[in-house]
């Protein structure tokens, strides 16, 4: 039962990723991307990584989708004629993606002969507490995270200041 469930989740995730790429509307793309993130979060819970699953669900599925939707909301859509012209050209460029994805999957199974077993092994992965690792062993990661977040914050402030001046 678990095996079928895992396989279904993984297939839905790849299908949502294909939908994200070939979808005509940016809004639908952003929502499909949120679905990919949500499924990834479920997989993280199953792979004994609940804390990163929570982060994935709250930040990637929630915050990033909100950022994407806000950004799309600040731009105006194309007019109907232009949109129709683009739709015709779009399909020509994106029609190869499902074929490429299927070919890569088949080649992978052909070269690496692995059985189709998606059942998680019974062994519960042992390891130290993630808080212990993050605060004691990988403190430099925290310094990096703080630097990156501050860089992002200052970057956004500078960008919006430039835009206000421009207006």
């Amino acid at each position: 039962m678990l095996s079928t469930f895992n396989l279904m989740l993984l297939i839905i995730m790849v299908m949502a990723a294909i939908g994200t790429v070939i979808s005509r509307s940016l809004l639908k793309s952003a929502i499909s991307l949120a679905l990919v993130s949500a499924i990834l979060a479920v997989l993280m819970f199953e792979l004994a990584s609940p804390l990163s699953g929570v982060f994935e669900l709250s930040i990637c599925t929630g915050l990033i989708t909100v950022i994407f939707l806000s950004t799309i909301g600040l731009t105006s859509p194309k007019d109907a004629g232009e949109q129709e012209e683009l739709t015709k050209k779009r399909w020509k460029r994106y029609r190869y993606l499902p074929v490429i994805v299927t070919a890569v999957a088949l080649l992978y199974f052909w070269f690496i002969k692995i059985p189709m077993d998606f059942t998680l092994p019974a062994k519960e992965a042992a390891g130290s507490d993630v808080r212990n690792v993050l605060w004691n062993l990988r403190q430099i990661d925290l310094v990096g995270q703080i630097t990156i977040i501050l860089t992002g914050a200052f970057g956004v402030i500078i960008l919006f200041r430039e835009l206000t001046k421009h207006e």
């Binding site: 004994a48 990163s52 930040i59 915050l63 690792v133 062993l137 990988r138 990096g144 995270q145 919006f160």
Partner: peptide, 25 residues
Amino acid sequence: HTATAQALVITLIALEVVVIVVGGG
């Protein structure tokens, strides 16, 4: 080593958000 992997993934998620925010801007 799930704890180490989770620590790395959390760092990756923080990085991802900043890239998206600045890129979107």
